[in-house]
Amino acid sequence: MQFPWVEQLKGQLSSQLSQGRLPHALLLSGSKGVGKKHLAEWLARLILCQTPIRNGNVDSQACGHCKHCLLINSGTFPDLKSLESNDNIGVDDIRSVTRFLETTAQIGQSKVVVISQIEHMTVAAANALLKTLEEPNVGNVLILSTDNIDLILPTIVSRCQRVDIRPNNQQLTAEQHENHPFANASYLPELSDFESKKNHDQLVAHFLTWVTGHAAFVEFEHLFLSEAKGLIWLERLVSNIIREQHDWLKDEAIGGDLTEIIRQKLDIDSLHRIFQLILATNKQLATYAQVNETMAKQQFLVKLQRLVS
C-alpha cells in the first residue's frame, strides 16, 4: 500500500538525521493502516544503513545492499530490535528492551528499537518504558507507535518527538471521497476491507438512528457488543459530530437533517461527556489485562443510555 502523506514526514526526519538532530525517542501516532509501520521501518533502516542514498544534502533512503541492510533484510541484524503485540506488552518485554539498549552496538554506532502499539503496555511496562526514556543512551533511538495516543501516559508522550500521521482528504482517492465524507486516516481500514466497512457503516447507522429516536436501542446494542472495533468507531463518530457542532466540519458530512436532529437531542456538553466516557472505557480496556471486555462494554452502554436519555 502506498502512503503519499508520509513523504513529507520522511523529508523532515531525514533532515533531522543528517543534521544530527534526531531525538532519542519518537512517537508515531495515527490510526491503524495509516503507515506507521512503513515509516518506522524506513527510519530504522536509514539510521542503520552504512551507505544511505543522498538527496541533496540529506540521507533520504537506506541503500538496501550494504552489509547492514542485508542483515536487516534477513532478520539477523544484531543492533535492531522490534517489539509488537496484539495482546499485552508486559514489563519483562520493556526490561528486555532496556537491557538491549544498555549494551554497546555490535557492528554499528547505533542501536534502534521499534515498539508498535504501545497502548497495549501494562501499567508496569509503561512505567518501565518511562524510566528508559528518562535515561537515554547516546546514539540509540527508540521508535514507538500507537493507534490511539489518548491511551498513552502524558509523561511518555512528553519525552518523545511526536509524529502525527494524518492524510488530508486531497490525498485519498476520489471514490473514497464520494462514498465517505469523513474519509481520513481513521477510516483507512474500513475503506480497504469490505466486511469491515459494512460492519462499520451498520454500527454508525444504528447509533445515529437510535440517538435521533428512529430506532430501538437494542439494535445498536447488539451490533456494538459483537463488533471488536465498536468503541474505536464510536469514538471517531462522536468526535466528528462534535467537530460538526463547532462548525469545524461541514453539515453534509453526517447529513444536514440528522445534524439538526442531533443538535436538538444532544447539546455540546452531552456530546463531550459521551466522548469522555468512550475514552475512559477504551483506556480501561487497554490498560488492565484482567478486565472483562464484554462486561466493560455493557457497563459503558448503561452509562451511555443515561447520557442520551
Rank of each mutant, 00 (worst) to 15 (best):
L266H: 05
D164I: 14
R45M: 11
G30H: 12
H177D: 02
L43M: 06
E235C: 05
S192L: 15
K197I: 08
H180I: 06
N184G: 15
T287I: 07
T294E: 14
A228F: 05
N55M: 13
V58P: 04
I278T: 11
A296I: 06
E195D: 14
E41R: 15
E235Y: 13
A174L: 11
H177E: 04
H200V: 12
V157I: 13
Q245I: 02
V6F: 07
A228H: 04
T155Y: 02
A25P: 00
S15Q: 14
P189W: 10
L285H: 10
L142A: 15
I262G: 11
V291L: 05
F207D: 03
N57G: 14
G75I: 04
S186M: 06
T98Q: 08
L225W: 09
K297S: 10
L26C: 01
Q19M: 10
L203K: 03
H24M: 13
T51C: 03
T132P: 03
I165W: 00
S158M: 10
D269Q: 15
I262M: 07
S196R: 13
Q170I: 13
R273Q: 13
L142S: 11
T209F: 01
L13Y: 00
S270F: 10
P167G: 00
D269R: 11
V163K: 02
M121P: 01
L9K: 13
C49V: 06
N55P: 03
P52Y: 04
G56R: 13
L208Y: 00
V6W: 04
L151K: 08
D164V: 09
L22V: 11
T122G: 00
N199H: 11
Q290R: 05
E221F: 12
A126I: 00
R273E: 10
V114W: 03
G256N: 11
L26D: 01
T287V: 10
L285A: 14
Y187N: 10
Q202A: 14
Q305R: 09
C160I: 02
I241F: 01
I232M: 11
L13Q: 00
F194H: 09
L223K: 12
I241T: 00
Q305K: 11
L223M: 12
T155N: 01
K131W: 02
P154K: 05
Q19D: 07
F3K: 12
F275Y: 14
Q106D: 15
N168S: 07
A183M: 10
P78E: 11
N292W: 09
L285M: 14
S60A: 15
L133K: 01
I274S: 12
V114K: 03
E41C: 12
V218M: 15
W210H: 05
P4H: 08
R95V: 08
D267C: 07
E244S: 14
N168M: 02
G230T: 07
C63D: 13
E7W: 03
L130R: 05
N179S: 05
